Lab assay of single mutants.
Amino acid sequence: VHTTPGLPSGWEERKDAKGRTYYVNHNNRTTTWTRPIMQLAEDG
C-alpha cells in the first residue's frame, strides 16, 4: 500500500491529468479532493 508521509495510514496524495491534487484512500478504495486529517489514536 502506498502511503504519503503526513497523511493517515493508507492514504496517498496524487495529481490528476490537470495537475489538481487529490487523495486516495486505499483502505476503502475511495478518493477525495479534501486532504484527510490525521486522527490521534484513541483507546476504547
Rank of each mutant, 00 (worst) to 15 (best):
T34V: 14
Y22V: 04
M38H: 08
E13V: 11
N27M: 09
E42T: 09
P5E: 15
E12Y: 03
G10H: 03
P5M: 15
E42W: 07
H2K: 15
H26G: 05
T21A: 11
G6R: 13
Y23P: 02
E42G: 14
T21K: 12
T34Y: 12
T3E: 13
M38Y: 11
Y22H: 00
T3G: 11
A41T: 15
N27W: 06
K18D: 15
A41W: 07
Y23L: 02
P8N: 12
W33Q: 06
R29M: 15
L7H: 05
P8R: 07
G10N: 09
Y23E: 03
A41F: 11
R35D: 03
T31G: 01
R35E: 03
E12N: 08
G6F: 01
G44P: 14
H26V: 08
P36A: 02
H26W: 10
L40F: 09
H2V: 11
A41P: 14
V1Y: 05
T31D: 04
N28E: 05
L40R: 14
S9N: 15
N28R: 06
G10A: 03
T4N: 08
L40W: 09
D43G: 14
N28K: 07
G10R: 04
Q39T: 08
P36E: 05
P5R: 14
V24S: 02
T3D: 12
H26S: 04
R35V: 03
T4A: 05
G6Q: 13
T31L: 05
T34N: 12
N28W: 10
I37P: 14
L7G: 05
N25T: 03
Q39I: 07
R29F: 06
T30P: 01
K18W: 01
H26M: 11
G19R: 03
D43F: 05
R20K: 12
G44A: 12
T4F: 08
T30W: 15
T3K: 14
H26R: 09
L7E: 06
N27G: 09
G6V: 10
R20Q: 15
I37E: 14
Y23R: 02
G19W: 02
E13P: 02
T4D: 11
W33P: 06
G44D: 09
P8K: 08
L7V: 06
V24Q: 04
E13D: 01
R35S: 07
G6M: 13
D16E: 01
D43I: 05
P5I: 13
T31I: 08
W33G: 04
T32G: 01
M38G: 11
D43P: 08
R14V: 10
E12W: 01
K18A: 13
T34R: 10
W33K: 15
V1W: 03
V1D: 13
L40T: 12
M38R: 12
T4P: 01
V24G: 01
T32Q: 11
E13R: 05
T32S: 09
Q39G: 12
I37G: 11
W33L: 05
P36V: 00
N25E: 01
W33H: 03
Y23Q: 04
G19T: 08
E42Y: 09
L7R: 02
P5Y: 13
G19K: 03
W33A: 04
N25W: 00
H26Q: 10
Y22N: 01
I37Q: 14
N28Q: 08
T3S: 08
Y22K: 02
L40D: 13
N27H: 04
L40N: 15
H2Q: 09
N27S: 10
P5N: 12
P5D: 14
N27R: 10
D16C: 02
M38S: 09
A41N: 11
P8L: 07
D16L: 00
E12K: 01
M38L: 10
P5L: 14
T32A: 04
K18Q: 11
Y22W: 03
R20G: 09
N28C: 10
G44R: 14
T31P: 00
W11I: 03
D16S: 07
D43T: 13
M38C: 12
D16Q: 00
E42P: 09
T4V: 07
R20W: 07
T31Q: 07
A17R: 01
G44L: 09
D16F: 00
G6I: 01
T32F: 00
V24A: 06
D43W: 05
Q39P: 13
I37D: 13
I37R: 11
R35G: 04
E42M: 07
R14Q: 07
A41D: 13
E42F: 15
N27D: 06
R35T: 01
R20I: 06
Y23H: 06
R14W: 04
G44S: 15
A41H: 10
W11A: 00
N28A: 08
R29D: 11
Q39F: 12
D16R: 00
Q39V: 09
H2W: 03
W33R: 08
H2G: 08
N28M: 11
T34W: 07
Q39W: 07
R35C: 08
T32I: 00
R29W: 03
G10L: 02
T34A: 11
Y23D: 03
T34Q: 13
N25Y: 01
G19L: 02
N25D: 10
L40K: 14
P8Y: 01
E12L: 03
W11G: 01
N25G: 03
P5F: 13
V1L: 06
M38T: 13
N27A: 10
